[in-house]
């Protein structure tokens, strides 16, 4: 592997992502105080998913790494999704 193509992320990018993460944290705490009924869980998980995407892409460098790592992530994510989906199908039709 050539070392020269190693992507170096600047400090500024990291700090911006961190600020974004803090903003999303305060958003999720604020939204939790509002009664959204059945949407509460959905909103909380959506915000958590956006935060994870930021951490995985920038902090964990997935965005700049070899495509194989994206593929790894996709496979594990899909596995987890299938496990959840099958369990809930089983649970709701009991």
């Amino acid at each position: 592997m050539s070392e020269s193509k190693h992507h170096i992320t600047g400090y500024g990018t990291y700090v911006l992502v961190w600020l974004g993460l803090l903003a999303l944290t305060s958003l999720t705490v604020t939204v939790a105080g509002i009664d959204l009924g059945n949407f509460t869980l959905f909103v909380a998980l959506t915000i958590a998913a956006i935060k994870s995407a930021l951490v995985i892409n920038i902090f964990m460098h997935i965005k700049f790494d070899e495509p194989i790592f994206k593929f790894f992530l996709l496979v594990s994510g899909a596995t987890l999704f299938v496990i959840f989906a099958l369990t809930f199908v089983d649970y709701s039709f009991r």
Binding site: T28, V29, A32, G33, D35, T40, A44, L45, I47, A48, K51, S52, V55, I56, F59
Partner: peptide, 15 residues
Amino acid sequence: DLIWIFLFPLFYLLQ
């Protein structure tokens, strides 16, 4: 950190 991102709303933010 990622795991905590999910633990926090699921345990603390249920109203």
